[in-house]
């Protein structure tokens, strides 16, 4: 059956149009829109000032229990370190020949502690603690570092308000900072 010329013209236009669309950046039409529920499930990063901290709270006392169950095997009963990192102490050592980097001596922002514990700890079962338990264990680690009273309760507001001792000791990248004169003969 003969194809009407008008139909061929429409077909040709359609092909040209689809090529033109493929060549325009931002219009590949690949991927789909993420739903709010999907984003909420993965959107776990916490800003340094506490942005995106979830509702809930935890006490130092409850954190001590969680720490003993979930953390002490690697980090030591008092956060002194073991297979896992030392978490406590070291204040005053950072500018010495033997710096001891811990949450208390080196970490600049307290909300980052919540972020890291929730996403990566305990190492054998990350993202298994409830938000309440993460607040509590964060509270206990801060308490062991002398940054939170023993009767304290930590939530989004109080965690964001803590000023870490080493906060102002970070700077940008000044490199190139080392010069080699590139001597070639008789150096």
């Amino acid at each position: 059956m003969p194809i009407p010329k008008s139909a061929l013209a429409v077909l040709a236009l359609t092909i040209v149009a689809s090529f033109a669309r493929a060549e325009t950046p931002g219009h590949y039409g690949i991927g789909r829109t993420a739903t709010d529920a999907e984003i909420a499930g993965w959107n776990i990063d916490i800003g340094r000032n506490g942005e995106n901290l979830p509702p809930g709270s935890g006490t130092v006392a409850h954190g001590k229990e969680i720490f003993a169950e979930q953390c002490a095997a690697c980090h030591g009963e008092k956060g002194q370190g073991g297979v896992g990192e030392r978490l406590v102490g070291g204040q005053g050592t950072i500018a010495t020949p033997k710096p001891i980097k811990t949450v208390g001596s080196f970490w600049p922002y307290a909300p980052t502690l919540f972020d890291y514990i929730r996403r990566a700890m305990p190492q054998n079962a990350p993202q298994s603690l409830s938000n309440e338990d993460v607040y509590a264990v964060s509270a206990y680690i801060l308490n062991m570092n002398g940054l939170l009273p023993a009767d304290a309760t930590l939530d989004a507001k109080t965690l964001s308000a803590i000023k870490m001792p080493n906060r102002d000791m970070f700077t940008g990248d000044p490199r190139p900072d080392v010069k080699n004169p590139a001597c070639e003969k008789g150096c």
Binding site: I46, Y109, Y116, F170
Partner: peptide, 25 residues
């Protein structure tokens, strides 16, 4: 984000106690 891996790790500590952050290159 000032995540753990760009504050407590992967920052370059100088003798005076100042740590360089975001040292990418």
């Amino acid at each position: 984000a000032y995540s753990r891996e760009e504050t407590s790790k992967y920052t370059d500590l100088m003798p005076d106690g100042v740590a360089r952050e975001f040292t990418f290159y």
